[in-house]
């Protein structure tokens, strides 16, 4: 199959993957809390309902911005699997994330604004890692595309243990899990904790949710990059990491944004930076 077909498949199937993952997540979380939890397809019901519901907008910019957020999130994955340069993909990913911040901030209301600013902080916290991760992957495999990395004979994760650990830490932000879910959370929350979506309703909220499904699939693809020997291996690694995230999510409480920034930057600098330094010094 050509990369273009992979890209198309990502656009079509990533929401299914992300939605099912969210459904499993909710059931597993419920079981951890001693509950039965919702049906597996609950996330799809929720999005279906949001699309049927009336939408009330505060600022008409929000909708195009959110559509663009969704579009760029899908495009990031499509570009990644479609064989675009890995580092360029991260730039598009950052643009996608930024659009969500702008959509929330455009409401100009206290909780939305706080949510937007906090999301900007977590974007700042996570962005260096993704650039460094892609650089490290390119460095190890001497490839610059997804297909190239998969074709490489090196098992990337063995060369990049620090990057792998840092990935688990930083992915907590992108997966909206405690202790780093300071702008929006998987759990029903309000006001400061879920400020990002406080003034979004109906289909706007559905866009955010759909984009998040794409994002989960994208993170899974990133994990496949680290376990490049086979796709099932990468999926397995992602499943293990995700289970760990759910456990941590249920076992920890949210921390202040200062600590989010400090801890993720420390992890990025020490684990990822150290790993990268070792690679450069050893001249690989």
């Amino acid at each position: 199959m050509t990369p273009a077909i992979y890209a198309l498949l990502f656009v079509l199937l990533a929401p299914v993957f992300g939605g099912l993952l969210a459904g499993i997540d909710r059931i597993v979380s419920a079981r951890m809390q001693g509950r039965v939890g919702p049906p597996l397809l609950q996330p799809f019901y929720d999005v279906g309902k949001l699309l049927q519901k009336r939408t009330r907008q505060i600022n008409p910019i929000a909708e195009p911005l959110l559509i663009a957020h969704l579009g760029y999130m899908a495009a990031t994955g499509a570009l990644l699997l479609g064989g675009t340069d890995l580092i360029f993909t991260v730039f598009v990913y950052a643009l996608a994330a930024l659009l969500l911040v702008l959509a929330a901030g455009s409401a100009n209301s206290p909780f939305s604004f706080a949510g937007a600013e906090r999301e900007l902080v977590v974007l700042l916290a996570s962005e260096p890692f993704f650039i460094l991760m892609m650089v490290a992957v390119c460095k190890v495999t001497a490839a610059s595309t997804f297909g190239g990395v998969l074709a490489s004979s090196q098992l990337v994760a063995v060369q990049l243990p620090g990057v792998l650990l840092a990935f688990v830490v930083v992915a907590t932000i992108k997966l909206r899990k405690s202790p780093f879910d300071i702008s929006i959370s998987h759990h029903p929350h309000q006001e400061l904790v879920s400020g990002l979506t406080s003034d979004m309703s109906g289909r706007l909220l559905a866009y955010v949710e759909l984009a998040h499904w794409y994002e989960s699939a994208l993170l899974c693809a990133f994990m496949v990059l680290l376990f490049n020997w086979s796709v099932p291996l990468g999926l397995l690694a992602f499943a293990v990491a995700y289970a760990l995230e759910v456990l941590v999510d249920n076992a920890t409480s949210r921390i202040k944004w200062q600590l989010v920034l400090r801890s993720t930057w420390a992890a990025t600098l020490l684990l990822c930076g150290g790993n990268l330094l070792a690679l450069f010094v050893m001249g690989r």
């Binding site: 911005l65 930024l98 702008l102 901030g105 409401a107 900007l120």
Partner: peptide
């Protein structure tokens, strides 16, 4: 480059929020 570029996103993002709010 990685940290500098991320900081760039942060300060421009703040300004964009201010401009786009209404």
């Amino acid at each position: 480059m990685a940290f500098g570029s991320s900081l760039t996103i942060f300060y421009w993002g703040k300004l964009l929020i201010k401009i786009l709010s209404a």
